[in-house]
Design a binder for these strands. Structure first.
Length: 576
DNA sequence: GCCGTTTTCGGCCCGACTGTTTTCAGTCG
């Protein structure tokens, strides 16, 4: 079992324990343990099998969780988890996904009314049975009926890029409200997570009612879920939720810090405050003994009074940021303006919609100094992938065009060469050797067993003509999981053979993810952030990759294409 | 279940809102 699978098992333990009404701190301990393992930069199985190492030394993992990990690694399952699965019926878990229903009420509904399906629940509501239960009422009953529709729509997380579109449109709308003097987005959107589950908006307003009224008039609002003196929650089309919170000017920094999260980051922040005799809430930082307020206007103040520098939102996951902050070693994260080139894009030769010249002109407009044309190789027949002959023809064209762009843009002869199902590269080595830039990637045989697909990937890394691995895990957010691949082995091989790894900036990919990027950085593997553009517009996704890179803690020098091509070329030669 | 330059027991971040209550539990973030 790999770390992700172990973490998932522990998370499920936490979820199920919640339904059993367990001690909340025990539940959190399982969540913390799962997080620690998911973010651990090395394999749990490897640590366990090394007599020199002790898994319990990792914060959040104690004696009990070590035993659980051992059982999971050795047997692939966990008896306590199996028992809990039997003890907590699936329908209870389904019911708890309905907004407004949680573990306690879901359990009660099943026990008191014998609900065994969401259909039963709907019927019970329609027959007015729910409103009579203690702790329930008419409003809860009708909220459940509304919620059933939402639960069935499975309001999933949306891509960061989609959240960004919504947020920008809503910002435009809210700016028309004169009562609002300050506004900022918070939550996982501000932290730049690859997907976003809801939007959090923070405002300072001279008239709170007016600000809330204004939000409620946004055209896509389908429902107001709740509204109080300081907060309004609405549902946008497709069940997506937005919370807006109104605060005072001198609370804005504290509120922004608070609502940006993550939850784990906030818990850690407040623990540090508490140790200093301070208390942090969304209104400010206060002395515990006499309740004096000592900060709150800006986020910077909030961090400073507990002895920390301001921490970039992308790093606020309670991973390494507190240690880095305390040691004064917070990185200056990479920015979009640092990017000099784009090393993955397609043209009309395969499945792109624009020509080499179109892409070159668009790259110049975007301030780039070099691009690599990397069309598909022949195995990707659906995209009319290139064989050696057609590829060499394309390169001949590039040779001709290069002169036109001399001094403005360097156009590199590249290829995105498939790693074949049986292993090996899709194009002959003598051909690949003529390229300036060779990406290797997997498009077929994605469901192969772990050992096989890992071996294929490592085979490509060992090929001296390959420069970088493109979209190394193959994941498509919300659509397709990553390949079953041993990234520890893949990264070790990349390190050994001096290969680059791609951060594919396509908002549905963002592959490598933040944790893999952090690991690659720790190993010293150079990252290239590429758009994988299939059209001119596709070049504009670079920013999404930058945010992901920031979440991985990358600085400009960790990203190879922040250098100009001559320097990058030298780096390639040294690496190989 | 984890953790400990006060502790191996007794803490564990903090508050808004709702609906059902009549002082609070449940849910959410």
């Amino acid at each position: 079992m790999d770390n992700a699978q172990i973490a998932k098992a522990l998370e499920e333990m936490a979820e199920l324990l919640e339904f059993r009404g367990e001690n909340p701190f025990r539940i959190r301990a399982y969540q913390n343990g799962a997080k620690a393992i998911r973010e651990l930069g090395e394999s749990v199985a490897a640590v366990l099998s090394d007599p020199e190492r002790d898994l319990a030394k990792i914060p959040g993992i104690g004696k009990t969780l070590v035993e659980k990990c051992q059982t999971l690694v050795e047997t692939g399952s966990l008896p306590q988890l199996e028992e809990l699965r039997k003890a907590v019926p699936a329908v209870v878990i389904q019911m708890a996904r309905i907004p407004g229903l949680g573990a306690k009420k879901a359990v009660k509904l099943r026990e008191e009314l014998g609900i065994e399906s969401l259909g039963d629940l709907r019927k019970a509501c329609q027959e007015d049975q729910v409103a009579g239960l203690k702790g329930f009422g008419k409003k809860t009953q009708s909220a459940i009926l509304d919620g059933l529709a939402i639960a069935e729509e499975a309001a999933s997380r949306i891509y960061w890029s989609q959240a960004d579109g919504l947020a920008r449109a809503i910002s435009d709308h809210m700016q028309k409200c004169k009562a609002i003097t300050k506004m900022e987005w918070a939550g996982s959107y501000r932290r730049g997570r690859d997907t976003v589950g809801d939007l959090d908006l923070l405002v300072v307003a001279s008239d709170r009612e007016a600000a809330m009224d204004h939000l409620a008039t946004y055209p896509d609002v389908s429902q107001t879920i709740g509204r109080g003196e300081t907060k309004i929650s609405i549902r946008l089309d497709k069940a997506f939720q937005l919370d807006m919170r109104c605060v005072e000017e001198d609370e804005f920094g504290a509120a922004l810090q608070y609502f940006t999260g993550s939850q784990a980051h906030n818990i850690h922040t407040r623990k540090i405050a508490k140790e200093k005799g301070l208390k942090i809430n969304e209104y400010g930082v206060f002395k515990i003994d006499d309740d004096t307020k000592i900060a709150g206007t800006t986020e910077k103040d909030v961090y400073e009074v507990i002895g920390l520098p301001w921490i970039p939102p992308e790093l606020r996951e309670d991973r390494l940021e507190f240690k880095l902050a305390q040691d004064g070693k917070l990185p200056t994260l990479v920015e979009l303006k640092d990017i000099r080139g784009d090393l993955h894009m397609h043209t009309t030769a395969t499945d792109g919609t624009h020509t080499i010249r179109d892409m070159a002109d668009a790259a110049i407009e975007r301030g780039l100094s070099y691009i690599a044309i990397t069309d598909h190789s022949k195995r990707v027949s659906m995209a009319m992938g290139l064989d050696e002959k057609r590829l060499r023809q394309q390169w001949a064209v590039i040779d001709e065009i290069r002169n036109e762009y001399q001094g403005r843009l360097t156009i590199l002869k590249g290829i995105e060469c498939d790693i074949l199902e049986a292993g090996g590269m899709d194009l002959a080595d003598d051909c690949l050797a003529e390229a300036d830039w060779v990406l290797a990637s997997i498009h077929y045989g994605q469901k192969q067993p772990r050992d096989q697909i890992t071996e294929r990937m490592i085979g490509a890394i060992e090929n001296p003509n390959v420069t970088a691995i493109a979209h190394p895990t193959g994941r498509l957010l919300n659509r397709r999981p990553a390949y079953e691949i041993d990234m520890d082995q893949v990264m070790a091989a990349a390190k050994q053979h001096g290969k680059f790894m791609e951060l594919n900036a396509n908002p549905a990919r963002l592959d490598l993810n933040d944790l893999h990027l952090a690991k690659a950085k720790a190993l010293g593997i150079p990252i290239v952030i590429n758009t994988d553009a299939h059209s001119i517009d596709g070049l504009d996704v670079m920013g999404y990759g930058i945010i992901q890179a920031r979440r991985g803690g990358l600085v400009a020098k960790d990203v190879a294409n922040t250098q100009d091509w001559p320097e990058l070329k030298k780096l390639i030669d040294v690496q190989h």
